[in-house]
Simulated assay, not measured.
Amino acid sequence: ELARITAVAPSTISGHLTRLLDAGICVTERQGRHSYVRIADGATARLLDDLACHAIPDRDAAHAVPVVAAPDPLVRARTCYDHFAGRLGMAVTDAMERRGLLHTQDAFELTEAGRAWCAEAGISLAGEGRRPLASSCLDWTERRRHLGGLAGARLRARAFEEEWVVRPEGGGRALEVTGAGERAFGDLLGLTPEAWS
């Protein structure tokens, strides 16, 4: 994708990425058979942004790089293994973080307030072997990490039980948020349909 977007040979991109990884400027995250490269941390990102402001004319002009061409239903809401993904998965994760229910800085961690919230929302966190309570999963359309682990799986299960989400006709991984789901996500996390549209 980087080679296509920048119109450079894949071997050139690979060489540059190797140097950035060796220097600690970037890190690699594996997700299934894919490998994603990201800037190592917030301090490095700020440094690169500051340098780009000086080096690139009109740096602040609006720009966008389309990275994923996926059918709209899959981008809006889908399952990723046994938890939410797409814009819905990211909206849930972001809302939980904003409300202090989930820490996402390094490893994902459900807070005490998050455990209480799960209990109030009817989301059971009773054991399931050695599975972590919360884990991160890299979203292939949003290119950000969303909530996985036991909490993510149990939230998705509750949403199916209560018919907050349903599979569209034809099945697949895409999801549709129902009217009941709009109300539930609004009541539980302050989300509106615009968050996943």
Rank of each mutant, 00 (worst) to 15 (best):
L125N: 11
C118M: 07
E128T: 01
T111I: 10
H103M: 02
T111P: 00
A134R: 11
L110Y: 00
A126C: 02
G127S: 14
S136Q: 14
I123M: 11
G127I: 05
A107K: 05
A121N: 07
S124W: 01
R130E: 15
R130P: 04
A121Q: 13
G122T: 00
L110N: 01
L133H: 15
R115V: 01
P132K: 15
L125W: 09
A126W: 03
L110R: 00
W117T: 07
R131L: 08
I123H: 09
S136D: 13
G114T: 00
A126G: 08
I123G: 06
P132E: 14
C118W: 04
Q105C: 03
A121V: 08
S136H: 13
H103C: 06
A119C: 02
G127T: 13
G122Q: 04
E120N: 05
T104S: 13
A113L: 13
L125Q: 10
A113Y: 00
I123W: 10
F108R: 05
G127L: 10
I123V: 15
L110D: 00
W117R: 01
T111W: 02
Q105T: 10
E120Q: 11
G127R: 14
E128C: 05
P132R: 15
E112N: 13
P132T: 05
R130V: 03
A126I: 10
R115S: 06
G114I: 04
L125E: 13
G114W: 03
F108S: 00
L133W: 11
A107N: 11
A113M: 10
T111L: 08
A121C: 12
T111F: 01
G114S: 05
G122L: 10
R130G: 15
P132F: 05
L125T: 13
H103P: 03
A113E: 10
P132M: 09
G122K: 05
C118H: 03
A134C: 12
A134Y: 09
C137L: 04
W117Q: 07
R131T: 14
A107T: 10
W117A: 08
H103Y: 03
E109N: 02
H103K: 14
R131Q: 14
L125D: 12
H103F: 06
T104L: 07
P132Q: 08
R131P: 00
A126H: 13
E128S: 12
S124Y: 06
G129L: 06
E128R: 09
G129T: 07
L133T: 15
A126L: 14
D106C: 04
G122F: 12
A107G: 09
G122H: 11
H103T: 06
A134P: 12
